[in-house]
């Protein structure tokens, strides 16, 4: 475990906690895309099947359980919680799941390392994670008024992806650990999706004004 990986996992954890905190304390999910949250729940459910088959470390297992638990709780809050669900803006959050899920499923069937159920689902989760943020980014662009916590959430997620790339570079030089090229490309695509958001996030921070994305 290197510093980039640890920092990446911690920002990922922080992003989820920020979102749960917002939903739980303010009892509002305004500006949060249910589509993105459902896609993340699907990402974790398909990727972490190995908690039943492999043991890597206590850290690894605990983190997987946290990501599974938190993603499904967020979906539950937005769909079922009697107060939170009222703040969900269904009209704005229109991105179609299958528009992302089907191409990822197809791509996983075509490009994978091994043709086994577990491996295909893992590959699918890697592809899906790369694009799962899209409904959230579209929603941010539409709502214009981005509250602080939602902005922090997306920023922390972007930071997590950037740190994972640094982690792969570091692991390559220090451990000669090769991350599969599927992971590299999906990871790079995912990180690039945040570039635009990062630009406006830092601009608003520098000028000390409220974050707004151009229409």
């Amino acid at each position: 475990m290197n510093i980039f990986r640890l920092a990446g996992d911690m920002t990922h954890l922080a992003s989820v906690l920020v979102l749960l905190l917002k939903i739980h304390t303010i009892k509002s999910c305004a500006g949060v895309s249910l589509k993105t949250q459902e896609l993340y729940a699907l990402v974790f459910a398909t990727r972490y099947l190995d908690i039943f088959t492999d043991f890597i470390s206590v850290y690894n297992t605990v983190m997987k359980l946290i990501f599974l638990g938190s993603s499904f709780s967020i979906v539950w809050y937005i769909r079922r919680h009697k107060i939170v669900r009222r703040s969900y803006d269904k009209e704005q959050d229109t991105f179609r799941h299958y528009f992302l899920v089907l191409p990822c499923l197809l791509l996983a069937l075509l490009i994978h390392e091994k043709f086994t159920v577990k491996e295909l689902l893992w590959t699918f989760s890697i592809y899906l994670e790369a694009v799962a943020i899209l409904p959230q980014l579209v929603l941010l662009q539409r709502t214009r008024n981005i509250d602080n916590l939602t902005g922090q959430y997306v920023f922390l997620l972007g930071a997590y992806r950037s740190l994972y790339i640094l982690n792969w570079i570091y692991r390559y030089f220090t451990e000669r650990h090769f991350v599969h090229w599927i992971t590299w490309i999906a990871g790079l695509v995912q990180t690039l999706l945040y570039a635009d958001f990062f630009y406006y996030y830092f601009e608003s921070w520098k000028n000390n004004v409220k974050l707004q994305l151009p229409a």
Binding site: D50, K64, Y164, N167
Partner: peptide, 10 residues
């Protein structure tokens, strides 16, 4: 399982 096949990242 082969060590190198283990996916130790999250």
């Amino acid at each position: 399982i082969d060590q190198k096949d283990q996916k130790d990242e999250l």
